[in-house]
Design a protein around this nucleic acid. Structure first.
Lengths: 123, 123
DNA sequence: CAGTATCCCCCCAGATACTG
DNA sequence: CAGTATCTGGGGGGATACTG
């Protein structure tokens, strides 16, 4: 394995969770297993291609598990792996900071889509 | 101000610290004020253009301060703003996770450039 | 030293169609 | 439903030269 040089350790973290959609995907998975179609619904602006791509990379880096149910129609679920759960603290902190930031910038009014907040707090 | 819709709060965080180099810059600034040239030296792969661009955006979002010393030759320093310091916990967590990840992937051998580790721990 | 201004290439990611 | 394959365009970001 070729050794990669990092100038600062955070670069290694960003290589894993720095992709365009990776933090968002991981945040959703902190609330439990999700099917592909669920993830797609939770991220209306992601394309099928990007979703699959980002999921593959997260899987390669060992932070999520891909669970395939051998059935028709196909069913696939994704979940945080044990290793991925070591990111939960960070992911929650990122979400919390975002909420406070929204309040700071836009005031106290409701700025995150209700449906998804619901979804977030349900599982 | 146009209200932005987020599907999940982490998206708001990523708008602030999600830029290609922003986390790296912010991590360096957690160790104290830095001159432009210092930052450039700490990030050998960033271009002047990107450095300035990312710094401007961080400033606009209120997480860093730009300190201009009126003198010749010019001297400019950047530091975490008070608001930016609310990110310190996250930034440190990102660095810590990166260190552990490097160890996990490459083993215990030294993988982050010595000069910069030194630099990190000095200030 | 810190920062602009141009030019321009490359590739990321979107759109679309298709498979099992 | 989950995932591939292919084509394509726009813009992110590099290189370079220049200013105060």
């Amino acid at each position: 394995m070729q050794k990669k040089k990092y100038n600062i350790s955070v670069e290694a973290t960003l290589e894993v969770i720095g992709g365009k959609w990776k933090c968002v995907i991981l945040c959703h998975l902190t609330h439990g297993k999700k099917r592909t179609s669920e993830l797609k619904r939770l991220m209306p602006n992601i394309t099928q291609k990007m979703l699959t791509q980002q999921l593959r990379e997260l899987e390669e880096d060992g932070v999520i598990n891909r669970i395939v149910y051998q059935q028709i129609p196909p069913k696939v679920e994704y979940e945080l792996s044990e290793y991925g759960r070591s990111l939960e603290g960070i992911l929650n902190a990122l979400c919390d900071w975002g909420e406070k930031h929204i309040t700071k910038v836009y005031g106290d009014t409701f700025s995150v889509l209700e449906e998804n907040i619901l979804n977030d707090h349900l599982k």
